[in-house]
């Protein structure tokens, strides 16, 4: 509750600090505009054309609908990866043997291209939600797992000894000692996993689903609709930016308040 209150309280100041970020985004749009003018609308639609298409999708109601479907799939896969990856990574980090055994397995998982998982998932789950959710999970899992594993292994041994002499029960050991330290490793991993999950869910939908943003992209591609394609891309990227900067970043600042210099 206190967390929520300070989060909301710090928001205006935080948003005000976003002008710099906004300026760099506008520069990107300017570059996009230049490229579009140079190559013509068929190859690269102008930003305003893309936004107009997005407005049309929005008015039709398809934007919200498709984004909701895609969001649900990406977030379910991501949530699974975060939960299972963090828990297993923590467990593996506590035991030397487990971390040594899991490292090569995770490297294999990391090296496996998501598209290969997608093909397998299509065989296993068909055209259901299972295909994109599984692909997202399996791609995001190793990233989160490695973060949790490294965080756990780097906990200061002196603090662990201190906690042992205080006879801290196991659940407090996790909550008060491991998790706060782990957070600075987990958080970047979670952000990376979030970005991956959006990219991969759209790829999976493009190839294996009848609905969602990926499927909508497949349709705009078949119509050679450059403005429509870019409209979907901007919607997805915009949503990702909003989640990261409006939700995750303020959360991180609050949880990591102890790092601030006096």
């Amino acid at each position: 509750m206190r967390l929520l209150r300070t989060l909301l309280g710090d928001w205006p100041a935080y948003l005000w600090s976003g002008w710099g970020a906004l300026a760099s985004l506008l520069l990107l749009f300017a570059g996009w505009q230049l490229a579009a003018e140079h190559y013509g609308s068929l190859v690269l639609a102008q930003p305003l054309e893309a936004f107009a298409s997005l407005g049309r999708f929005w008015a039709e109601g398809s934007a919200v609908q498709e984004l909701a479907i895609t969001g649900r799939r990406a977030l379910s896969g991501l949530a699974l990866a975060l939960l299972i990856g963090s828990a297993l990574g923590l467990a593996a980090g506590v035991s030397m043997t487990a971390s040594m055994m899991s490292r090569p397995l995770v490297t294999v998982l990391l090296g496996m291209p998501p598209i290969a998982w997608l093909v397998l998932a299509m065989l296993w789950f068909g055209a259901s939600d299972g295909t994109p959710v599984f692909t997202v999970f399996v791609a995001a899992f190793p990233v989160v797992f490695i973060g949790a594993l490294q965080g756990t292994r780097t906990l200061d041994g002196q603090l662990r000894e201190m906690a042992r002499t205080l006879h801290l029960p196991p659940h407090l050991m996790v909550l008060d000692v491991y998790l706060p330290h782990l957070f600075s490793y987990l958080f970047p991993a979670w952000v990376a996993a979030l970005g991956m999950s959006w990219k991969i869910v759209i790829m999976a939908e493009l190839l294996a689903s009848q609905d969602g943003v990926g499927a909508a992209l497949a349709i705009t591609r078949s119509h050679l609709d450059s403005a429509g394609t870019l409209a979907w891309v901007s919607a997805v990227v915009g949503l990702l930016l909003a989640i990261e900067y409006l939700l995750l970043e303020p959360l991180k600042r609050e949880v990591e308040r102890w790092r601030e210099p006096s």
Binding site: Q158, L159, E161, M162, D176, V177, P180, H181, W258, R259
Partner: peptide, 11 residues
């Protein structure tokens, strides 16, 4: 009581 304070930095 250890040689270093060994405080949890996040508390």
């Amino acid at each position: 009581l250890f040689q270093q304070p060994r405080l949890l930095p996040w508390k």
